[in-house]
């Protein structure tokens, strides 16, 4: 019994310690004057993290928008309310689906790659040798990736919403025959820029920070063996998915739950 309590306590201490390490880690990497070279490194990472995730995010966005319209139509048409389809598609995407699904895809596509890449650099002593050359790997390797992730996920989320709404239009208007004017008109009337678009973007920024932070930290902190890398990659996807879904509930409760 006593043993179980001690092990619970030890677990707690370990968790706190690793949170502390992660905090110091992100503070040391994110702070610093951006140089011209830092800018180049960041652009390079924007390509690897952002541009290469574009395909999966946009294709998923298109299909999710189409499915939403299809499901929504079959429901709304019973009440003769299929005019509200545009509003339904846009609100679900902007408030919930785009930030959450894009973040989950991003964790799987870019987060796991970041962890594996940094982990491999650690396992092959590249990070150590950089340190010995007198270059801080936090600045050189971690910071550009952190910032690239933080900037690219919100942009990907915008892309996801736009393509999703278009997918809804394809199915709802082009295929099922909802009147085009009411699809766009109802959407325009009901979507508020700050309340819906803005809150969705805030969600996306929070998810971007959390997912990239987890991915990069897991890569930097892993046990430098092949087994360690594969475990850390798995942990990145699991932790970031859970964090995104959990935080989504909290943020939704604050933004749309009328708690404030």
């Amino acid at each position: 019994m006593i043993e179980q309590i001690t092990s619970l306590g030890r677990r707690g201490c370990e968790l706190l310690e690793s949170l502390g390490r992660a905090g110091i880690f992100v503070a040391q990497s994110a702070v610093g004057v951006p140089s011209r070279e830092g800018w180049h490194l960041w652009l390079r990472q924007m390509h690897f993290v952002g541009v290469l995730s574009l395909a999966i995010v946009l294709v998923s966005g298109l299909f999710i928008g189409m499915v939403l319209a299809l499901q929504g139509y079959t429901l709304l048409v019973d009440f003769g309310a299929e005019q509200a389809l545009g509003q339904m598609v846009a609100l679900s995407l902007l408030r919930e689906l785009a930030p959450v699904v894009a973040a989950l895809l991003f964790a799987g596509r870019a987060g796991s790659a970041l962890t594996a890449e940094i982990g491999l650099m650690k396992a092959t002593e590249q990070l150590s040798s950089m340190e010995m050359i007198g270059v801080d790997p936090l600045r050189r390797v971690v910071a550009p990736r952190l910032w690239a992730g933080f900037v690219s996920l919100p942009l990907l989320t915008i892309g996801f919403s736009v393509v999703g709404i278009y997918g809804g239009y394809l199915v709802g208007v082009e295929w099922l025959g909802v009147f085009e004017g009411s699809y766009w008109g109802n959407m325009q009337a009901s979507v508020s820029f700050i309340g819906d678009v803005g809150n969705g973007m805030i969600k996306s920024l929070v998810f971007a920070l959390v997912v990239t932070w987890i991915a990069v930290f897991q890569g930097y902190d892993l046990v430098p063996t092949s087994e360690g890398i594969s475990r850390a990659t798995t942990r990145t996807v699991v932790y970031s998915s859970l964090a995104v879904l959990g935080l989504d509930f909290v943020l939704t409760a604050i933004m749309f739950g009328g708690l404030t």
């Binding site: 650099m121 092959t124 002593e125 590249q126 150590s128 040798s129 950089m130 340190e131 010995m132 050359i133 007198g134 270059v135 801080d136």
Partner: peptide, 19 residues
């Protein structure tokens, strides 16, 4: 410390070249 390291070179076992 980073300034000090500029006065040292280290050859790692694996070479540790930037891939």
């Amino acid at each position: 410390l980073f300034a000090m390291r500029r006065r040292m070179g280290m050859l790692f076992q694996s070479g540790a070249l930037f891939s």
